[in-house]
Design a binder for these strands. Structure first.
Lengths: 214, 214, 214, 214
DNA sequence: CATGAATGAGACTTCATTCAT
DNA sequence: TATGAATGAAGTCTCATTCAT
C-alpha cells in the first residue's frame, strides 16, 4: 500500500519540477496552468488534485527552497567561525544554489523575492526572517567588537542580501552562462566589499588572510 | 493660442499623476484603466487619447524619472569631488527622490526595476545605463588609486545600487513613514559600508573625516 | 470510451449550428459571441474551448460547406454527361443547397463569398477553386467543339457562378419563402441562359431536348 | 458671397474624394473617420460639419454614382436600338465606369452592392431599380418577339448584372491592372453570352452581325 | 468654417477553477 | 487517481460622435 502513496508523491514532485521549469521559462503570470500540466505530462485537472491553486504551486516551490536557505543560514551562524566567515558561508550557499539550480533560483528571485507587489508581499515575513538572521550575526559581531557600530544591523542585512540578489538578477538575465571562476570571484567580492565595509579598521588586514583559507 | 496646448499638456499630466497614485496604491496589474480615468477625473477614452496603452503610461512614468536620475548621476560624476563624495551624491539623490515622491519611487522600483520579468526586462538597457555610469566612477577611482582593484566595477555598481534598492523596498512596504533622520542615516551608511568596502586600506581614515563634513 | 469524444464532438457541432443560425439572423459582425453561446445553450467560454476565435467559427462553417460543393462539382465533372448537363448538375446542387439549408447558404454567400473585403478575401483562393473547376468544364467543352471559343472559360465561370449567386442573394433578402417550382425553374433558366450563350449554334437544339430529361 | 459657398462645396467634395480613396484602400469598416480627415487634409471634426455620420459619406458616394448609372440605363433604354444593343450599352457603361474610376467602383461594389448585410440592405430598393430597368428591357424584348419567353425578365436582369458584378469583383481583387483590350473583350462576352442565351433561335445569327457594328 | 480634445459604450478573448465521469 | 470538458468573470482597447473654443 505504500506504492500508491509513493507514486502520488512522485506525481506531485513531477508537477512541481515542471512548474519550476515553466515558471523559469515563461514567467509565472505568462504561463497557464495547462502549460504546467503539459510540461509534467499529466492532465489538466490533476494539477488541482495536488495543489489548490496556481499560486500554491509557487508558494510551495518558494517555501521549500527558502526554508533550506534559512536552515543553511542558521547552520552557518551556529558555527564558531568569525562573522566574516559566517557571511561568506551564507553568500556562498546562495551563489551555489544558483549554480546548481539556476531555474529554481530564477523563480525564487524573479517571481517571489523581487516581486514586491505579489508573492514578495505574501511571503514578506518569511523573507525577512533571513534578513533578521543576517542582522543577528552583524549585531553579535558588533557586540563582540569585530564589527563597528555605525552601521545598523538592519541596514547591513539589506545591503548584504541586496548585493547578492542584484548579482543573481544580473546573471539570470544575461545571455552568457556564468562560469565557475566568476561564481567564486563574486563570493569573495561580496565579503570583501560588504564585510570590509562593516569591520573595524583594525580588523581590515587579518580577515583578508582568513578569507584565503576558504 | 498657447492655452489649448497647455490645457492638453495638463490633462496628460493629470492622467500621469493619477496613474502614479493608482499604480502605487493598487499595483500596475491589479488596477484597471478605468481606475486611472476615475482617479484623474476624466473619461475612459481620454486615457487612450494620450497613451496608446496602459503599458505606455508606466513606461512614460519610468522613463521621465529614470532620465532625471541618469542626469543626476552624470552631474555628480562631472564634479571634481572624490569618488566617495560622488557616490554619496548619487545615493543622496535616490534617497531624496523617495523622500519627496514616495509614490513615484514606489512605482519605479516595484513595477519596473524589480519587476524583472515584465517592465524590468523592457527597460533593461536603460536601467543598466545607471549601473554603467556608477561602474565608470568606480573604474576611474581604481585608476587613480583611491579604490582598490580587487572588486570589479561591475560588481561594485550592483552592490551599490542593490543596497539602495533594497532599502527603498523595505521602506515602501513598511507601515511606518520614514523620518528624516533615518533618511540621512541611510545615506551615510550606504557610503560608509560600500565605499569603505571599495577603498584602499590607506584611504580608510581620511574619507571618514570627509564624510563628517556632509 | 467513445461516449465522451462523441459528446465532445456533439458540443462542437451544437456550437457550429447555433452560430450558423445566429450569423444568418443577425449577421456576423452584428452578433456577439455570447449570442452564439446563448443560442447553443452553453457557457461563453466553451465557444473558445472549441474555436480559437469568432472568425474561426465562420471559417469552419464556410470551409465545411465549400469543400462539399467542390466535391460535388468534381463529381459532376467526372461523369460522362454533356457540358450542359454537368453545369445543370452544379447549378442544381447549389440551388438545392439553398433549398435544404437556407440559413447556412445565407451565411456562406452573405458573410463570405460576397464579403469581398473580409472573409471573401481570406478565402479567395478556395473560392476561386470553384471557378477554376467550372472554367475547366467550359474549356474542355470548347476543345471537344460543343462550346464555342469566343467566350473565355474564365468569363464563363464568372458569369455562371455570378448568376447563381445573384439569384441566391435575391432569395435571401426577399420576404417570401421560395417555392419548389421557382427553385426548379431557376435551375432551368440558368442553363437555358448561360449554356445556350456558350454553346455553338448547331448545338442549340439538341441540348434543349437533353435538358427536358432532367 | 458665392465664394465661401463654393469653397464649402469644394471642401465637401475634397472629403468625399478622400473618403473614396480611403474606403477603396482600407475598406469602409477598417478605416477610421480620422483616416478620411487625414487623407482630405482637414481636421477631424470638419467631416461632421459636412456629413452627419461615417455612413452618410458612403451613402453619398453610392447614391451619386448609382443615380448616374440609373440615368445611363434609362438613356440606353430610350434609344431605338435593339435589346442586345441596349444591354451592350449598359454593360459598356458599367465596365467603362470601372475603367475610368476604379476606386469609386470598387467602393460601390465591395462596400455597397455586395455588402448584403449592411449597405446593400440599406440601398436595396435603389439597387433593385437597376434590375427593374434591365428587366423592363428584357420584358419588352420578349413582347416584341426578339427574346424568348422561357426566361423571366427578373432572372435575366439578375444574370446580366450578376455576371458583370462578378467580373468587376475579379478585377478589383486581381493584382494586375486590366488592359483596354480585356475591357473591350468583356463587354462583348457579356452580350455574347447573356443576350445570346436570351434571344430566340432565329435571332442568333443577325445579332452577331449587329454586335460587330459597336 | 474649423479644430481636435473629450466622451463612453461595447465586444472579444483569456484562463483559473470546478466537476462529472 | 485521473481526465479534460465546462464555466464565467474580468479587463483592455477601439472609435464613432459630440462639443467647447
Amino acid at each position: 500500500m505504500a506504492a500508491p502513496s509513493t507514486a502520488a508523491a512522485d506525481k506531485r514532485r513531477v508537477i512541481l519540477d515542471a512548474a519550476m521549469r515553466v515558471f523559469a521559462r515563461q514567467g509565472f503570470h505568462t504561463c497557464r496552468v495547462s502549460d504546467i500540466a503539459d510540461e509534467a505530462g499529466v492532465a489538466y485537472g490533476l494539477v488541482y488534485h495536488y495543489f489548490s491553486s496556481k499560486d500554491e504551486i509557487l508558494d510551495t516551490l518558494f517555501l521549500e527552497r527558502w526554508n533550506v536557505m534559512l536552515a543553511a543560514i542558521a547552520e552557518a551562524d551556529r558555527t564558531q567561525r568569525s562573522p566574516r566567515e559566517k557571511l561568506r558561508a551564507i553568500a556562498g550557499f546562495i551563489v551555489d544554489s544558483y549554480r546548481y539550480e539556476p531555474e529554481l533560483m530564477k523563480v525564487i528571485v524573479v517571481e517571489v523575492t523581487r516581486a514586491a507587489n505579489t508573492f514578495g508581499r505574501t511571503h514578506l515575513a518569511k523573507i525577512r526572517e533571513a534578513y533578521e538572521q543576517i542582522g543577528g550575526i552583524v549585531a553579535r559581531a558588533q557586540a563582540d567588537g569585530s564589527f563597528r557600530e555605525e552601521i545598523t544591523p538592519e541596514f547591513a542585512a539589506l545591503a548584504f542580501y541586496g548585493s547578492i540578489e542584484q548579482v543573481l538578477t544580473r546573471w539570470i538575465f544575461d545571455r552568457d552562462p556564468v562560469d565557475d571562476e566568476e561564481l567564486q570571484g563574486v563570493k569573495t567580492m561580496i565579503v570583501e566589499t560588504i564585510c570590509r565595509g562593516l569591520e573595524r579598521d583594525a580588523a581590515l588586514s587579518p580577515p583578508a588572510a582568513a578569507a584565503s583559507s576558504d
